[in-house]
Amino acid sequence: MFASPKTASSMRWHDEGRTKDGMLRHPADSPAWKAFDDRHPEFASDARSVRLGLATDGFNPFRTMSSTYSTWRVVLVPYNLPPWMCMKQSSLILSMVIPGDKGPGNDIDVFLQPLIEELKQLWEGIDAFDAFTGQTFKLRAALIWTINDFPAYANLSGWSTKGRIACPSCGDSTHSYWLKNGGKFCYMGHRRWLEPNHPFRFQNDLFDSTTELRSAPIPPTGTEVLRQMHGTNYIPGKVSKCLKKRGREDVGSSLNEGLISEILEDANFFENDDNAYGQENDDDTLVASTHKQLWKKRSIFF
């Protein structure tokens, strides 16, 4: 890989040329960026190490609402450039395009496998030439986060972003209401993120007729997420529909077999001392079972 002097100097911008006026001008000022640098100081010591963000979403290429055709593009955003450069079209990296008559869903991991392998190679480092210094160095890159809406977030992470517990960060603390007339859930409780003495917390007549005294939920750590995924099994590929109509006896036997296998699977899951939670009361068992159902797969990013 060859780096021009202009590019090499721009890659050093996030450490030297950024003005700090108390405002978040660039993702380099974010807590996630700084936490990553603290965890990987060797990676952060070289200003040429590339930080990447992955953005993906589906769109209809035919500009007609009557067609359900959905094409998904996967774009990498390099954040080592100044904010007026990293979001320009010339700086974005179109890594792949996933065509299809509908979205890939949870099977998007199948398409992302080559990209993940290349990102692993970049994390280990590849030989590159710095034209600014005239020397060869090990170029490393890291994927810091993904950028997507909630439906795409469900496909990438494997968490079900629908229903009562739709927020992966809030988890069981998700504050949701079922709208009887609307026939859908609405998500409230936004005042929990305000300061403890904020006046909005006590203005119950302007919100949902309640006083908000709760604190903001604590997002789960990576270790907790992996424990919640324990026992999740997902086989890529669409399930083929059975053309032959089954009889009543066949339907009943299949339902009983499925119920028995599910009970046995849950029993084996909670008998293990290294299970997701290792707690004995019924409430915690219900919570662990709920998490297991909400995680549809173990994402390729894990």
Rank of each mutant, 00 (worst) to 15 (best):
S4C: 15
R12C: 04
D15M: 03
E16P: 00
T19A: 02
D21S: 02
P27L: 06
K34R: 10
F36A: 10
P41E: 09
F43C: 02
A44Q: 04
P61T: 08
Y69P: 00
R73H: 12
V75K: 15
V77N: 12
P78Q: 04
N80G: 13
P83G: 08
W84Q: 13
L92M: 15
S95N: 01
M96R: 10
P99T: 04
D109L: 14
V110F: 07
G134L: 00
A141K: 03
A152S: 15
N155M: 14
P168R: 04
P168V: 12
N181P: 07
K184M: 12
R192F: 02
P196H: 01
N197H: 07
D205A: 05
A216C: 11
T221P: 02
V225P: 00
L226C: 09
M229E: 05
G237Q: 15
G237N: 08
G237R: 11
S240D: 14
C242I: 06
C242Y: 05
L243I: 01
K244C: 01
K244Q: 09
G247R: 03
E249M: 09
L255K: 03
E257Q: 10
L259G: 00
I263Y: 06
E280H: 08
D282Q: 11
L286C: 07
T290M: 12
I300F: 11
F302V: 07
F302H: 13
